[in-house]
Protein backbone atom coordinates (compact mmCIF):
# COMPACT_ATOMS: atom_id res chain seq x y z
CA UNK A 1 0.00 0.00 0.00
CA UNK A 2 2.90 2.27 0.83
CA UNK A 3 4.33 1.74 -2.63
CA UNK A 4 1.03 2.55 -4.34
CA UNK A 5 0.59 5.71 -2.35
CA UNK A 6 4.16 6.66 -3.17
CA UNK A 7 3.51 6.25 -6.88
CA UNK A 8 0.35 8.31 -6.72
CA UNK A 9 2.04 11.10 -4.85
CA UNK A 10 5.36 11.04 -6.64
CA UNK A 11 4.38 13.76 -9.11
CA UNK A 12 3.15 15.98 -6.29
CA UNK A 13 6.41 15.47 -4.40
CA UNK A 14 8.47 16.52 -7.38
CA UNK A 15 6.46 19.70 -7.74
CA UNK A 16 6.69 20.62 -4.05
CA UNK A 17 8.88 23.56 -3.17
CA UNK A 18 12.07 22.51 -1.43
CA UNK A 19 13.08 25.54 0.70
CA UNK A 20 11.94 25.57 4.33
CA UNK A 21 8.26 26.46 4.05
CA UNK A 22 6.59 28.99 6.28
CA UNK A 23 3.23 27.42 5.74
CA UNK A 24 2.28 23.80 6.25
CA UNK A 25 3.68 21.56 3.54
CA UNK A 26 0.70 19.33 2.79
CA UNK A 27 2.84 17.16 0.57
CA UNK A 28 5.14 16.29 3.47
CA UNK A 29 2.11 15.43 5.57
CA UNK A 30 0.58 13.26 2.87
CA UNK A 31 3.47 11.73 0.92
CA UNK A 32 4.38 8.13 1.67
CA UNK A 33 7.86 9.03 2.85
CA UNK A 34 9.30 9.81 6.28
CA UNK A 35 10.55 13.43 6.19
CA UNK A 36 13.99 13.60 7.77
CA UNK A 37 13.38 16.86 9.62
CA UNK A 38 10.46 18.38 11.45
CA UNK A 39 10.99 21.63 9.57
CA UNK A 40 9.97 19.98 6.30
CA UNK A 41 6.37 19.88 7.50
CA UNK A 42 6.26 23.63 8.02
CA UNK A 43 4.05 23.32 11.08
CA UNK A 44 5.89 26.28 12.63
CA UNK A 45 7.01 29.56 11.16
CA UNK A 46 10.23 29.65 13.19
CA UNK A 47 13.08 27.18 13.49
CA UNK A 48 12.55 26.88 17.24
CA UNK A 49 9.07 25.46 16.74
CA UNK A 50 7.30 28.03 18.87
CA UNK A 51 5.06 29.89 16.42
CA UNK A 52 2.42 27.71 14.78
CA UNK A 53 1.76 28.25 11.08
CA UNK A 54 -1.66 29.07 9.68
CA UNK A 55 -4.11 26.24 10.26
CA UNK A 56 -2.08 24.84 13.19
CA UNK A 57 -4.15 25.30 16.34
CA UNK A 58 -2.77 24.86 19.86
CA UNK A 59 -4.89 22.94 22.34
CA UNK A 60 -4.62 21.47 25.79
CA UNK A 61 -6.18 18.46 27.41
CA UNK A 62 -8.17 18.67 30.62
CA UNK A 63 -5.96 15.94 32.06
CA UNK A 64 -2.91 14.93 30.01
CA UNK A 65 -0.62 11.95 29.69
CA UNK A 66 2.29 12.33 32.11
CA UNK A 67 5.74 11.68 30.64
CA UNK A 68 8.33 12.10 33.37
CA UNK A 69 7.12 15.62 33.93
CA UNK A 70 7.83 16.76 30.37
CA UNK A 71 6.24 20.10 29.52
CA UNK A 72 4.11 19.47 26.49
CA UNK A 73 2.57 21.66 23.89
CA UNK A 74 0.01 20.25 21.52
CA UNK A 75 -1.11 21.40 18.13
CA UNK A 76 -3.71 20.22 15.70
CA UNK A 77 -3.52 20.85 11.97
CA UNK A 78 -6.55 20.54 9.71
CA UNK A 79 -5.85 21.32 6.05
CA UNK A 80 -7.41 24.35 4.45
CA UNK A 81 -10.92 23.71 3.18
CA UNK A 82 -11.45 20.70 5.43
CA UNK A 83 -13.16 20.28 8.77
CA UNK A 84 -12.86 18.04 11.79
CA UNK A 85 -16.05 16.21 12.71
CA UNK A 86 -17.42 15.89 16.22
CA UNK A 87 -18.28 12.35 17.31
CA UNK A 88 -20.14 12.81 20.57
CA UNK A 89 -18.04 12.39 23.70
CA UNK A 90 -15.18 10.75 21.89
CA UNK A 91 -12.34 11.35 19.47
CA UNK A 92 -12.59 14.24 17.04
CA UNK A 93 -12.68 12.75 13.56
CA UNK A 94 -9.82 14.47 11.70
CA UNK A 95 -9.88 14.38 7.90
CA UNK A 96 -7.10 12.96 5.73
CA UNK A 97 -4.33 15.53 5.55
CA UNK A 98 -4.61 16.45 9.24
CA UNK A 99 -1.77 16.19 11.72
CA UNK A 100 -1.29 16.19 15.48
CA UNK A 101 1.95 17.66 16.75
CA UNK A 102 3.28 17.36 20.29
CA UNK A 103 6.41 19.01 21.69
CA UNK A 104 8.16 17.54 24.74
CA UNK A 105 10.41 19.88 26.71
CA UNK A 106 12.38 19.80 29.94
CA UNK A 107 13.49 22.99 31.67
CA UNK A 108 12.23 24.96 28.70
CA UNK A 109 14.37 23.00 26.27
CA UNK A 110 12.71 20.95 23.51
CA UNK A 111 13.72 17.30 23.59
CA UNK A 112 11.47 15.69 21.03
CA UNK A 113 8.43 16.34 18.89
CA UNK A 114 6.06 13.58 17.90
CA UNK A 115 3.81 13.91 14.90
CA UNK A 116 0.80 11.88 13.84
CA UNK A 117 -0.05 12.27 10.18
CA UNK A 118 -3.37 11.30 8.65
CA UNK A 119 -2.37 9.95 5.26
CA UNK A 120 -4.61 8.45 2.60
CA UNK A 121 -3.85 4.91 3.80
CA UNK A 122 -4.06 5.64 7.51
CA UNK A 123 -2.30 7.35 10.38
CA UNK A 124 1.48 7.36 10.66
CA UNK A 125 3.38 8.24 13.84
CA UNK A 126 6.91 9.65 13.69
CA UNK A 127 9.31 10.84 16.43
CA UNK A 128 11.72 13.78 15.92
CA UNK A 129 14.59 14.60 18.28
CA UNK A 130 15.80 18.18 18.74
CA UNK A 131 19.42 19.20 18.40
CA UNK A 132 21.27 20.74 21.34
CA UNK A 133 21.12 24.24 19.84
CA UNK A 134 17.32 24.03 19.48
CA UNK A 135 17.58 24.88 15.80
CA UNK A 136 15.77 21.85 14.45
CA UNK A 137 14.60 18.29 15.04
CA UNK A 138 15.60 15.18 13.10
CA UNK A 139 13.71 11.95 12.54
CA UNK A 140 14.61 9.21 15.05
CA UNK A 141 12.83 6.17 13.59
CA UNK A 142 14.48 3.78 16.02
CA UNK A 143 13.92 6.00 19.06
CA UNK A 144 16.63 7.30 21.34
CA UNK A 145 17.80 7.34 24.95
CA UNK A 146 18.56 10.80 26.33
CA UNK A 147 19.99 11.50 29.78
CA UNK A 148 18.17 14.34 31.45
CA UNK A 149 16.90 15.63 34.77
CA UNK A 150 13.16 15.70 35.45
CA UNK A 151 11.41 18.73 36.99
CA UNK A 152 11.36 16.68 40.21
CA UNK A 153 15.16 16.69 40.12
CA UNK A 154 15.67 13.08 39.20
CA UNK A 155 18.29 12.06 36.63
CA UNK A 156 16.74 9.60 34.19
CA UNK A 157 17.44 7.94 30.89
CA UNK A 158 14.51 9.42 28.98
CA UNK A 159 13.14 7.15 26.25
CA UNK A 160 12.09 8.61 22.92
CA UNK A 161 9.85 5.90 21.47
CA UNK A 162 10.67 4.26 18.18
CA UNK A 163 8.14 4.41 15.35
CA UNK A 164 6.65 1.03 16.28
CA UNK A 165 6.40 1.94 19.95
CA UNK A 166 4.35 4.93 18.86
CA UNK A 167 1.90 2.41 17.52
CA UNK A 168 1.92 0.32 20.69
CA UNK A 169 -0.08 3.07 22.30
CA UNK A 170 -1.68 4.61 19.19
CA UNK A 171 -3.29 1.34 18.25
CA UNK A 172 -6.94 0.44 17.99
CA UNK A 173 -7.75 -3.05 16.74
CA UNK A 174 -4.34 -3.23 15.08
CA UNK A 175 -4.64 0.09 13.25
CA UNK A 176 -2.69 3.24 14.12
CA UNK A 177 -5.05 5.86 15.47
CA UNK A 178 -4.75 9.08 17.44
CA UNK A 179 -5.43 8.65 21.16
CA UNK A 180 -6.92 12.11 21.30
CA UNK A 181 -8.10 14.65 21.43
CA UNK A 182 -11.37 13.31 22.74
CA UNK A 183 -14.21 15.74 23.30
CA UNK A 184 -14.58 14.67 26.93
CA UNK A 185 -10.98 15.67 27.58
CA UNK A 186 -11.23 19.12 25.92
CA UNK A 187 -12.70 22.28 27.37
CA UNK A 188 -16.09 23.45 26.16
CA UNK A 189 -14.48 26.79 25.44
CA UNK A 190 -11.83 25.38 23.12
CA UNK A 191 -14.35 23.22 21.29
CA UNK A 192 -16.61 26.24 20.92
CA UNK A 193 -13.92 28.47 19.47
CA UNK A 194 -12.62 25.71 17.18
CA UNK A 195 -16.12 25.23 15.81
CA UNK A 196 -16.66 28.96 15.53
CA UNK A 197 -13.49 29.24 13.49
CA UNK A 198 -15.04 26.75 11.10
CA UNK A 199 -12.49 24.00 11.78
CA UNK A 200 -14.98 21.72 13.54
CA UNK A 201 -18.42 20.89 12.11
CA UNK A 202 -20.24 21.37 15.40
CA UNK A 203 -19.67 21.57 19.14
CA UNK A 204 -20.04 18.02 20.46
CA UNK A 205 -22.38 17.24 23.31
CA UNK A 206 -20.27 16.03 26.20
CA UNK A 207 -22.22 14.24 28.91
CA UNK A 208 -19.42 14.24 31.46
CA UNK A 209 -16.12 16.02 31.07
CA UNK A 210 -12.79 15.02 32.62
CA UNK A 211 -11.87 17.65 35.24
CA UNK A 212 -8.89 19.93 34.80
CA UNK A 213 -5.86 18.23 36.34
CA UNK A 214 -4.93 21.45 38.15
CA UNK A 215 -8.34 21.29 39.86
CA UNK A 216 -7.79 17.79 41.21
CA UNK A 217 -7.86 18.91 44.83
CA UNK A 218 -11.36 20.34 44.47
CA UNK A 219 -12.74 17.86 41.90
CA UNK A 220 -14.41 14.66 43.09
CA UNK A 221 -11.54 12.24 43.66
CA UNK A 222 -13.12 9.56 41.46
CA UNK A 223 -13.37 11.99 38.55
CA UNK A 224 -9.78 13.15 38.96
CA UNK A 225 -8.49 9.59 39.23
CA UNK A 226 -10.59 8.25 36.38
CA UNK A 227 -9.57 11.17 34.20
CA UNK A 228 -5.93 10.44 34.90
CA UNK A 229 -6.36 6.73 34.17
CA UNK A 230 -8.11 7.56 30.91
CA UNK A 231 -5.27 9.79 29.75
CA UNK A 232 -2.45 7.60 31.02
CA UNK A 233 -3.67 4.01 30.71
CA UNK A 234 -6.74 3.64 28.51
CA UNK A 235 -4.91 3.94 25.20
CA UNK A 236 -3.72 0.35 25.83
CA UNK A 237 -6.25 -0.73 28.45
CA UNK A 238 -9.35 -0.76 26.28
CA UNK A 239 -11.09 -3.65 24.52
CA UNK A 240 -9.32 -2.90 21.22
CA UNK A 241 -5.98 -1.69 22.54
CA UNK A 242 -2.59 -3.25 23.08
CA UNK A 243 -3.68 -4.53 26.50
CA UNK A 244 -7.03 -5.92 25.33
CA UNK A 245 -6.07 -9.41 26.49
CA UNK A 246 -5.73 -8.20 30.08
CA UNK A 247 -9.47 -7.57 30.42
CA UNK A 248 -8.58 -4.42 32.42
CA UNK A 249 -10.22 -1.43 30.79
CA UNK A 250 -9.56 2.01 32.23
CA UNK A 251 -11.36 4.37 29.86
CA UNK A 252 -13.36 7.34 31.15
CA UNK A 253 -16.63 5.83 29.91
CA UNK A 254 -16.04 2.32 31.35
CA UNK A 255 -18.69 1.40 33.90
CA UNK A 256 -18.12 -2.27 34.70
CA UNK A 257 -16.39 -2.36 38.12
CA UNK A 258 -14.67 -5.65 37.29
CA UNK A 259 -13.29 -4.32 33.99
CA UNK A 260 -12.03 -1.33 35.97
CA UNK A 261 -10.04 -3.75 38.08
CA UNK A 262 -12.10 -3.99 41.24
CA UNK A 263 -11.51 -7.43 42.73
CA UNK A 264 -10.22 -8.52 39.34
CA UNK A 265 -7.40 -11.03 39.21
CA UNK A 266 -4.49 -10.39 36.85
CA UNK A 267 -4.12 -12.42 33.69
CA UNK A 268 -0.68 -12.27 32.17
CA UNK A 269 0.81 -9.75 34.57
CA UNK A 270 3.70 -12.04 35.41
CA UNK A 271 5.84 -10.57 38.12
CA UNK A 272 4.06 -7.25 37.55
CA UNK A 273 1.49 -8.51 40.05
CA UNK A 274 4.08 -8.57 42.81
CA UNK A 275 2.65 -10.31 45.82
CA UNK A 276 -0.85 -9.00 45.14
CA UNK A 277 -3.92 -10.87 43.99
CA UNK A 278 -6.21 -8.19 42.59
CA UNK A 279 -5.84 -5.20 40.26
CA UNK A 280 -7.77 -3.04 42.71
CA UNK A 281 -8.69 -4.05 46.26
CA UNK A 282 -11.39 -1.51 47.21
CA UNK A 283 -10.29 0.41 50.27
CA UNK A 284 -6.75 -0.94 50.15
CA UNK A 285 -4.41 0.80 47.72
CA UNK A 286 -1.36 -0.95 49.19
CA UNK A 287 -2.76 -4.34 48.16
CA UNK A 288 -3.75 -3.21 44.67
CA UNK A 289 -1.66 -4.29 41.68
CA UNK A 290 -2.59 -1.04 39.93
CA UNK A 291 -0.86 1.01 42.60
CA UNK A 292 2.07 -1.41 42.78
CA UNK A 293 2.76 -1.13 39.07
CA UNK A 294 2.04 2.59 38.84
CA UNK A 295 4.54 3.36 41.61
CA UNK A 296 7.27 1.06 40.29
CA UNK A 297 10.01 2.11 37.89
CA UNK A 298 11.33 -1.38 37.29
CA UNK A 299 11.16 -2.72 33.72
CA UNK A 300 8.66 -5.58 33.51
CA UNK A 301 6.72 -4.19 36.47
CA UNK A 302 6.24 -0.46 35.80
CA UNK A 303 3.07 0.76 34.11
CA UNK A 304 2.74 2.43 31.69
CA UNK A 305 5.37 0.23 30.01
CA UNK A 306 6.54 3.08 27.81
CA UNK A 307 7.22 6.71 28.55
CA UNK A 308 7.60 6.62 32.30
CA UNK A 309 11.05 6.29 33.83
CA UNK A 310 10.25 8.09 37.10
CA UNK A 311 7.29 8.28 39.51
CA UNK A 312 4.41 10.68 39.13
CA UNK A 313 4.31 11.84 42.74
CA UNK A 314 1.47 14.26 42.06
CA UNK A 315 -0.82 11.61 40.66
CA UNK A 316 -0.02 8.82 43.10
CA UNK A 317 -1.99 10.34 46.01
CA UNK A 318 -5.01 10.87 43.75
CA UNK A 319 -5.09 7.24 42.63
CA UNK A 320 -4.47 6.03 46.17
CA UNK A 321 -7.20 8.24 47.61
CA UNK A 322 -9.67 7.00 45.00
CA UNK A 323 -8.98 3.36 45.88
CA UNK A 324 -8.87 4.07 49.61
CA UNK A 325 -12.32 5.62 49.39
CA UNK A 326 -13.89 2.63 47.65
CA UNK A 327 -16.03 0.29 49.62
Amino acid sequence: MRAIAAALLLSAAVLAAKPAPRQVNDTAVMAASFPQTLAEFGFFTDDAGTRPAAGVTPYRLQTPLWSDGAEKSRYLYVPRGKQARAQGDGLLDLPVGSALIKHFAFAGKLIETRVLLHRADGWVALPYVWDAGQTGAKLALAGRRIDLVTPAGQAISYGVPNKNQCKDCHNLAGITMPIGPKAYNLSAQWLGSFAKAGRLDKVPQVSRRIPLWEDRASAPVAAAARGYLDANCAHCHNPQGAASNSGLYLGWLEQDPLALGMNKRPVAAGRGAGSHEFDIVPGDPDSSILVYRFTSTEGGVAMPELGRESRDREAEPVIRAWIAGMR
Partner: peptide
Protein backbone atom coordinates in the same frame (compact mmCIF):
# COMPACT_ATOMS: atom_id res chain seq x y z
CA UNK B 1 17.42 -3.28 29.17
CA UNK B 2 15.91 -0.07 30.51
CA UNK B 3 12.39 0.10 29.16
CA UNK B 4 9.49 -1.74 27.51
CA UNK B 5 7.53 -4.75 28.66
CA UNK B 6 9.30 -7.35 26.56
CA UNK B 7 12.42 -8.00 24.51
CA UNK B 8 10.73 -8.24 21.14
CA UNK B 9 7.12 -7.37 20.38
CA UNK B 10 5.50 -8.53 17.14
CA UNK B 11 2.15 -7.04 16.14
CA UNK B 12 1.94 -8.00 12.44
CA UNK B 13 0.78 -11.17 10.68
CA UNK B 14 2.69 -13.94 8.87
CA UNK B 15 5.94 -13.28 10.75
CA UNK B 16 8.69 -15.88 11.13
CA UNK B 17 11.18 -15.70 14.01
CA UNK B 18 14.00 -18.22 13.81
CA UNK B 19 17.50 -19.19 14.79
CA UNK B 20 18.37 -16.62 17.43
CA UNK B 21 18.35 -16.21 21.19
CA UNK B 22 16.89 -13.67 23.59
CA UNK B 23 18.50 -13.35 27.01
CA UNK B 24 17.63 -11.66 30.31
CA UNK B 25 14.69 -9.48 29.34
CA UNK B 26 13.13 -7.45 32.14
CA UNK B 27 9.62 -8.56 31.18
CA UNK B 28 8.57 -11.19 28.67
Amino acid sequence: QKGAGEGLLVTSDEVTLRDFAVENTRGD
